[in-house]
Design a protein around this nucleic acid. Structure first.
Lengths: 135, 135
DNA sequence: TTTAATGATACTAATATAGTATTATTAAAA
DNA sequence: TTTTAATAATACTATATTAGTATCATTAAA
């Protein structure tokens, strides 16, 4: 069972790299690909999605590339996870099923919800900057 | 992102059903299928796996079926999840990648590990009996 | 020996994940 | 204004995982 998908992984690596190269504002996909050794076209799509999601700004044309729209200190691991993997919802899975049919009152739902929220709170403390500092 | 797979879901439902029918010791797959409306052959394999994993005992031949080997109060949601989905390991995914190359010292690893353990502890409190009581 | 159950194993279908290819668009610079 | 170096959009392919089915063997009670 994997908590973090490859998209999230690549996205995080790219963002950490970008946060490290602070002098240049705009960074091209090629630069990231060369340093981080990630599959180019795949990463392109990932960065495009980050741009669409409002994390990055894309700059078309010559001298173009990507830059941060949200500052890296404000980008949380959970933000990236949500973009590529959807919301982390511990309850959702059990609720969709009929294990607990009493959706409104079920104490299990409540319990799982609390667990999920606790996890989320902790994960939200992890940002791109805090990750890049660890390296 | 789904925390609980269909195998786990079906297994839990079957086990909850079995725990409810306490008078009969041995229960057939057909009984469960009829009451819980689960795909028969699929559920069969799931119960077989539960038997192999030591949760249930299987009884072959006429008047056969499945019975609990581990009492339902001692069967935790996490046990079932582990059987069908493998260990819940928050760290594994990030560690396999190169996000954090310093496997031994990385504080993120530590942090994620702690988060994972906390979650695990809470999940371990949920058993088949506690689930069947909620219904 | 028949019957009613599970066991083992191989197969198929659907979905999700990972990655590639192609063509269009944009904007700087020659 | 044309070239060039970048991203945008979209469609495609390959692989892995998940979900489910089918077949035949084994077992034990009646």
């Amino acid at each position: 069972m994997n908590f973090i998908s490859r998209d999230t992984d690549y996205a995080v690596r790219a963002l950490i790299f970008m946060a490290g190269v602070s002098k240049k504002e705009i960074i091209t996909v090629d630069e990231i690909v060369k340093k981080e050794r990630l599959p180019e076209r795949f990463l392109r799509r990932i960065l495009q999605r980050l741009a669409k999601s409002g994390i990055l700004t894309s700059h078309k044309g010559k001298k173009g590339g990507f830059s941060f729209f949200v500052p890296p200190a404000a980008i949380r691991l959970t933000d990236i996870m949500e973009i590529f993997q959807g919301k982390i919802d511990l309850t959702n899975c059990l609720l969709k099923s009929k294990v607990c049919p009493n959706v409104k009152k079920c104490p299990l739902r409540k319990k799982l919800k609390n667990l999920g929220q606790g996890l989320d709170t902790e994960l939200k403390k992890i940002t791109i900057v805090s990750l890049s500092k660890e390296r």
